[in-house]
Design a protein around this nucleic acid. Structure first.
Lengths: 142, 142
DNA sequence: CTTGAAATCATCCTTTCGGGTGAAGGCTTT
DNA sequence: AAAGCCTTCACCCGAAAGGATGATTTCAAG
């Protein structure tokens, strides 16, 4: 940052000197003001763009393309998992408790428990951690 | 791009007019050249930065997260997770219950419970499903 | 040699899960 | 209309998990 300011100051000083010199050396005294303005404008626009580059450099957005997930609907059908059950499964995989899922889906805790129980039967597991693992293997969830 | 050029042209024109006007209105004719230069430099530096920002904005990098798992040891250190805790975490992620982990590691259930509790504290979670999720995000486990 | 982290185990208590069973209302298919 | 599935909810009970705290041993670093 300090370096940039220094470069700007130096550029300005050199430019002033140069223009003054040129003015008395080669041109008439009433050299158009517009000319100076245009030159300065262009030069400092360039510098500004360069500075903008420097300043905004680390603005790289990284989009994580987690191993291209293709939803396996066939498997979902084969296991007879319903839409609602799949929904519960997704929230479960995100680490929510049954109560939290119930709140999220606007149903009672008991309903969620029913869904999870059915899921465990259909996935042939007995714990939610296993259910999540298996569901990921079968690509039922990302 | 066209818009930017237009804005630049217009700015320059307006500025020239404004300065000329001010010069004849309030100041002596021999107003320092340096003054103009400084004003123009600053203004166009600002415009340049803005333009540079516009131009370099949409830099989106898509990173494909393929299956190759790279163990993130730095994060493990940063969180202060011990070897044994990490071991428990791995089994936990495979869907084992605390009792099963205890049997697998030849320690008591209480020991495993202690490890899991410490893990939850260090990972700042409160359930094993969340712990697994976070650990995968941080690449502590595959 | 002391200090501290890691690993081990324990007890107590609360919350969450999981399993079993039953049931009502809605919707589709036969 | 009847059968079948989905969704919803309820109650009960035992198992598992989670939280708090304290104690012991071992081992490496200071």
């Amino acid at each position: 940052m300090k370096k940039i300011i220094l470069i700007y100051g130096a550029s300005l000083a050199v430019l002033v000197f140069l223009l003054k010199y040129l003015e008395y050396q080669f041109f008439a005294k009433d050299l158009a003001l517009e000319f100076y303005l245009a030159v300065i404008a262009m030069l400092f626009t360039g510098l500004g763009i360069w500075a903008g580059f420097r300043l905004t450099r680390p603005k790289v957005v990284v989009v994580k393309m987690s191993a291209d997930f293709v939803f396996n609907e066939r498997e979902l059908d084969r296991l007879g998992i319903s839409k609602r059950e799949h929904e519960v499964l997704e929230w479960m995989a995100k680490g929510l408790s049954n109560q939290e899922i119930a709140d999220k889906l606007f149903v009672s805790l008991n309903t969620v428990k029913t869904h999870t129980s059915n899921l465990f039967l259909k996935l042939e597991v007995s714990r939610r951690t296993q259910a999540i693992q298996k569901a990921k293997e079968l690509r039922l969830i990302p």
